[in-house]
Simulated assay, not measured.
Amino acid sequence: MHSISVADTPLVREPLHAPVAHLVRGGIVEGIHYGSVVVIGEDGAVRFRLGDIEAAFHPRSALKPVQAVAMVRAGLPLDGELLSLAAASHSGEERHLAGTRRILELAGLTKDDLRNVPDLPFDPAVRDAWVREGRVPSRLAQNCSGKHAAMLCTAALNGWSLDDYLDPAHPLQRAVAATVEDLTGQRIAGVTVDGCGAPLFAVSLHGLARAAARIATAGPGTAEARVADAMRRHPEMASGSGRDVAALMRAVPGLLTKDGFEGVQVAALPDGRAVAVKIADGAGRARIPVTAAALARAGVAPDLLTGFAGEQLLGGGRPVGSVRPVPALDPLPCAS
């Protein structure tokens, strides 16, 4: 593991965000999304920054690949679809529910052992069908159930207690925290509780990008490589049918990417290039176009990213504008 100094602790302050996306209607900027963006190169150096990349923030579910690495390091015997599901914010499709049950069954557990919050499925169509059938919120349907099942499985296989697996002092969560610090290369700035009930560790946007790069570039057979391979090969298990995360991984060869609530996205390529994005107001409509612009800034071919340019704004039922990354995010001109 890398050594960490106190100086590597993210700064706890109000983030100094900058404009990252414009809502342009009829050629006029109608609204502005603020946020922060970091692009790191193959050598790990920062190649581009916008806003505040060193302030402490909550990565939310964008940290799930790191949590999955921690569990694999602790002996979680998953690969393929089920390991992708362990790092997922899933849509609540039947394959996600069935996969979560399979993870639990590996340790002789059931859905009754889950301690995440009950919820309806994340995908709107799946959620509507669920409600029409008279079904109620459940822990299995909640989008983090795959991660929680994997946490329980890891704890059971290590002989750790199960009822308190979400306690930050639990051996499982201590292992997760150590992995967060190892992969981000910095101290955790704070610990709180994520929406699902699991501990949530505050890092910097820069640290999140570093962690993604570490996972995306790891050698064969490592915990990091197992997680990256699982998510790349089974992106719909890490998200869902029609989700932008899965579409982005399928569009860009070798890309590893994960979203998080409140406008977070991280992405990394096998050569170590990585980007991380935080939209200050949590707006999902700015998250993907800004991420695509950051990837283009990192050198991803623009033709691979044309489907992620941002939603159109309608007027009278016809397009009159769009959500656009700010000009500062335009790709650098190619050298002649």
Rank of each mutant, 00 (worst) to 15 (best):
R210C: 14
G134S: 13
C153H: 01
A212W: 10
L120D: 10
A198G: 04
A129P: 04
P199W: 02
D167I: 12
G92C: 08
A211Y: 01
V180W: 10
L106G: 00
L162F: 09
A189C: 08
K147G: 05
L97D: 04
R101M: 12
C144T: 07
M151P: 02
P171M: 05
T179M: 10
E181W: 11
L152V: 08
A87E: 03
L205P: 03
H148V: 06
V191F: 12
Q186D: 02
L106H: 10
E81M: 12
R132M: 10
A129L: 15
V191K: 06
A198W: 02
A198K: 00
G134W: 13
I188H: 00
A125V: 14
A213S: 15
E93F: 14
S89K: 04
R73P: 00
F122Y: 15
I215Q: 00
T154K: 01
A74C: 09
W130I: 04
V176M: 12
R214E: 15
T184C: 14
N143G: 02
A149I: 09
L78H: 02
A175W: 10
T192C: 11
D164Y: 02
G92I: 06
L140G: 00
E181H: 09
R102W: 02
Y165N: 05
R101Q: 15
V72S: 01
V72H: 01
D163R: 13
R101L: 15
P124V: 09
A149S: 12
D79Y: 01
R115W: 02
S204R: 03
D163C: 02
G207M: 07
L120Y: 15
P118C: 12
L97I: 11
V191L: 12
K111C: 10
E93W: 11
V131I: 15
S91L: 03
V203Y: 00
T184P: 01
N143S: 13
K111L: 08
V126R: 06
L76G: 00
G108C: 05
R187C: 06
A129I: 03
R127Q: 14
T100M: 07
A178R: 14
A175Q: 11
D163W: 11
T179L: 07
A88Q: 07
H90W: 13
R139D: 08
L97H: 04
S161A: 15
D79H: 08
S138Q: 12
R95F: 14
S204P: 03
E181D: 06
H170T: 08
L120Q: 06
